[in-house]
Design a protein around this nucleic acid. Structure first.
Lengths: 227, 227
DNA sequence: GTATGTGAAACGCTTCACAGCA
DNA sequence: TGCTGTGAAGCGTTTCACATAC
């Protein structure tokens, strides 16, 4: 691993630790051990320690990790010291659900605009935002300094919209469209596809209780408890 | 790897191949090479071939893979030869979006029931289903032979509902609640959390255009085309 | 005593390179 | 010739085990 590089597998777990810490802080817990964190996140203590060690040494031997201090370190590592503006494209059923989801602010993001192509939706008030036409996209991205966009539109329009977002300056796209997006090297796309998730579950159910096996995403399978 | 075991990383990609094949079939394409598949899925040809080889040898050297034949093999491997019944718990914004998502039937699933705890929602007609009270859960799971459930409820209720689902006989849970679920060994949970996804994106945007780096989930970064 | 931080071993996944077959 | 199928090498991640520090 190159100096200062945090492994991808670790990066994908940092948000998990952060969430556990936020909940612990709200519950008035001041210190957590790697074992506590592991239990709450469905992992093992060694992995937690190794992951956190990439951020530097922020624990106290014999004691554990200071909840507030570590939460701050994680927020910093994730680039969340202040809320990041997010643009939401597509105000259908899913888009509305995302716009109404309250957990954003609490976790470092702020939806600053809703955009849709349908004339009957434009101008509507959704979750405190007026839906804007696609023509406003570039101006909005520039004005708000938007780097992250969420795509909740049909697959057929996803590639075109992604290209427009990239041209406008967006560098990270979270796409719910069940299709693959071709983007330049410097742009990161993450795709969430419900049917894909269900199919992965279907495999393991169908294949029988395979003892090991757990692909990429968050999988719980044993003791893990919300704090 | 144990005999007959398909690696978890491969399992997570099988739905992707299946989707590409379905779209190719609809476009009238009869044969695809590993390179074609790789391009459409944002992967490389060697990975595609190795992945598909775990299912057996279904390609033709010098030619490629028969689209229909391979799609059938993949469906079989994923346990999707006939539609799997799915139970949806939680009919809020997100639950409605999921219930209304049309892509299910086409990809091997059938929502057979909606359940919610709120009295004002129970009895409503949503996406062609009457919302049932939680008390109907066990009967519905038994009657329809449901093995897969989707949780779209607040984090605070997720663990309790998961336990009830497991007790009723559900073996796979797709959870949208931003909390970890403790389940028995034989139950598989996959978690989808929007804020987590955004935070991972935030890391890479913040950390600058890291050349390598791409954690677990579907990441596109080069040539990939919707068919 | 207790829990972190970390080299080193073990493991799994990806990529390479080419043999095998149409 | 062209593309699949696959051992083997390479690489990243996980786990182990213990020195280190409170």
């Amino acid at each position: 691993m190159r100096e200062g590089q945090i492994p991808g597998a670790t990066v994908a777990r940092l948000p998990v630790y952060l969430q556990v810490l936020i909940e612990a802080a709200e519950a008035g817990i001041g210190v957590l051990s790697s074992d506590d964190l592991a239990r709450a996140a469905g992992l093992n203590a060694a992995k937690v320690r190794k992951d956190l060690s990439y951020l530097g040494s922020h624990g106290t031997r014999g004691v554990g990790y200071d909840v507030d201090g570590l939460a701050h370190q994680l927020s910093r590592a994730l680039g969340l010291v202040e809320d990041r503006p997010v643009l939401l494209i597509g105000v259908g059923n899913l888009g509305r659900a995302l716009a109404s989801y309250g957990g954003f602010e609490r976790r470092g993001f702020r939806i600053v605009g809703l955009i849709d192509a349908a004339p009957e939706v434009i101008g509507q008030e959704v979750a405190g935002h007026q839906v804007l036409p696609v023509s406003e996209l570039e101006a909005l991205v520039a004005a708000e300094g938007i780097g992250v966009a969420v795509l909740a539109i049909p697959a057929a329009h996803a590639q075109g919209m992604a290209e427009r977002l990239v041209a406008a300056g967006v560098r990270s796209i979270l796409s719910f469209a069940p299709t693959y997006l071709s983007v330049p090297e410097h742009v990161t796309v993450r795709r969430v596809d419900l049917a894909t998730e269900l199919q992965i579950l279907s495999f393991y159910e169908h294949a029988g209780p395979r003892l090991p096996a757990a692909p990429s995403r968050h999988r719980t399978g044993s003791t893990a408890r919300p704090v």
